[in-house]
Design a protein around this nucleic acid. Structure first.
Lengths: 339, 339
DNA sequence: GATTTCCACGTTAGCGCTAACGTAGGGAGT
DNA sequence: ACTCCCTACGTTAGCGCTAACGTGGAAATC
């Protein structure tokens, strides 16, 4: 016997009320006396009744799903952001549908289309650089949307993140203050990570503003991993001519890999060459020589972003954009030159 | 003007067929001539029609959602597993609803209940140790379920993973072969990670079988992070009496933190003390002294698991359980004693 | 006491699809 | 010519809820 799971009808019959009263009781909506409400709740529990989410979504013409698209998961940054959001959304009773775009805006666009078919309560996208049409589709569907991790004067809906150009410039200015003159930047292919490109632009502008040349750029075709950092740094150092006096990396992972490559190449850090990461990951706490890096408030971004999106879902007006601060963390991989 | 998104009716009217024919055409189901089919598809595209997932789920009495519950995301292990599954499910047209149980089986149970309300096509749980009732609920609802990362003779439905007891024993036997005699195990609280407890049990049984004492156990109350590994190791070494001759960690993160603590304590690795991790993470490739560790085939597990679940969703019979092999990776943090 | 108000509930009409079954019309078999 | 069958559709009846509006009766107002 494959007894179907009980429906709202069964509860209504058992208590002797209409299904509408059961619906109201289950949702905690006004219009039911507290006596009836608890009677209904008890009956529902006894029968093992659980409201069907799909039926509810169809009838209400919107679901309690929230779609989240992140470039990748194995990355403390996005894992932290997700963690910050998760707690907030979870408490509010939403379920999270996840996408992993692999830094591919086309993939993201396809997923957004599919997501809209679920009539989600909200959508979260990483960054502000999307494929054409994504913005319009989300707006046309009237879906509250949060863009996270970057900033933008005119977001799709709301936006929380850091100013990547300013972050790059801050790193540049710190390095200039140390006396570094010939930076290099190690990252990934230009179209893969728009935020990294903004940081590179900021870094470049800082050096150019002080009359130096812009950074030498080296790009990996693969993920921004430990290994990629090591390989690209090795290649960079193997090139002819004078090597840079400091190396800026797309993130701490690459920087750590790069540090290994430098040492393998016989360069002492920071004696012969400076190294700067990005993000301020947990691994720094246990490294014998902590990285100089820019710490990003990922959990804060997640929590704040989730709250902003929730406010939009509830129809509240909120600031369209929120830019959170970053902090330079001076470690043991850079030094004041000439000391 | 808030023009509603077009429904199946609009497409049917435009082409001059019944909605059923449109439904069939959209789903790629038999019973429509190819001429009509392409005419309908063209009309749908022109109107911007997209089938409503919620309506479809209700009418078909099951959705294309797949629920996945993992203990945590910032962890290469689960990120890899998820990545392996994602590709497979994505291609098959499923959407992934994610939960993050924080190693809390009660949380997992609550989420499973909520997930069932969506009538998902399938559910993925991590491990085989669940809160009471979870198994029954999933079975009663007839939802294809995959348990991943551990093994079990009688899974809820299907299961793919490694044998953690055997893995622990393999580590123990390797250490015994090296000549180590006094191991310690550094992990987290006993009820937080059942898999780690199984590995500990395997490790213990190996040493006991050779007439040695079981491992000294040290547990962190926090996450199995770099920092936790460092802190617990520091505490372990600070204790009176002789220190262990080798340290086994819950995972590579903790092991790496532990290695820092050893060096800070003036112990050389592997000269004075051996260190063994678990998982074989990417960071090993760039460490000056790669960890001795047990490599787990995470991506394989994900891909294989997803395929098994897909087969179950399609009603196929499959092996209920699949145990994948692990491989000991001897790094530079252990040595043959007496050499 | 007649009117208004309000609360607690019921009724009606879908939400946008799909499963299951029904049917017309053309071709093959005898 | 008559079945028989098969293909390409259409019709009917929901899936399990909620929004919007309707209604009776008790309390409040004058």
């Amino acid at each position: 016997m494959t007894r179907q799971s009980p429906s709202i009808q069964d509860v209504a019959r058992r208590v002797g009320v209409s299904i509408m009263t059961v619906s109201r009781a289950m949702r905690g909506v006004e219009g039911v006396s507290s006596a009836k409400r608890s009677e209904i709740l008890a009956a529902a529990k006894a029968l093992g009744y659980r409201p069907s989410r799909t039926a509810r979504s169809l009838a209400a013409s919107h679901s309690t799903l929230i779609g989240i698209s992140l470039p990748m998961l194995f990355n403390e940054v996005f894992a932290d952001i997700l963690d910050g959001m998760r707690r907030t959304f979870d408490t509010a009773g939403f379920d999270l549908v996840l996408d992993n775009s692999d830094y591919d805006s086309h993939r993201e666009a396809l997923w957004v289309e599919r997501m809209i078919d679920w009539k989600p309560a909200g959508v979260v996208l990483s960054g502000v650089d999307h494929a054409p049409g994504v913005r319009e589709q989300l707006r046309a569907a009237g879906i509250p949307t949060l863009e996270i991790w970057d900033q933008c004067a005119d977001p799709i809906d709301v936006c929380v993140g850091i100013d990547h150009v300013a972050a790059g410039r801050a790193i540049g200015e710190y390095l200039l203050a140390c006396g570094y003159k010939a930076p290099a930047f190690v990252g990934v292919e230009a179209n893969r990570d728009p935020r990294a490109e903004k940081r590179l632009a900021g870094l470049r502008s800082a050096f150019l503003a002080h009359g130096h040349g812009g950074p030498v750029v080296r790009r990996s075709e693969r993920h921004a991993s430990f290994e990629a950092g090591m390989n690209e740094t090795r290649a960079l150092l193997a090139a002819d001519g004078q090597h840079p006096d400091c190396l800026c990396y797309l993130n701490d992972h690459m920087a750590f890999g790069g540090m290994s490559a430098c040492e393998a190449h016989g360069l002492s850090v920071p004696g012969d060459i400076g190294i700067v990461g990005f993000n301020g990951l947990g691994i720094n706490a246990v490294l014998p020589r902590p990285l100089t890096t820019l710490v990003t408030p990922r959990l804060l971004m997640g929590t704040l972003g989730a709250r902003m999106l929730l406010a939009r879902i509830n129809g509240a007006k909120v600031e369209r954009q929120s830019v959170v601060p970053v902090e330079m963390s001076v470690g043991a991989t850079t030094r004041m030159m000439g000391l």
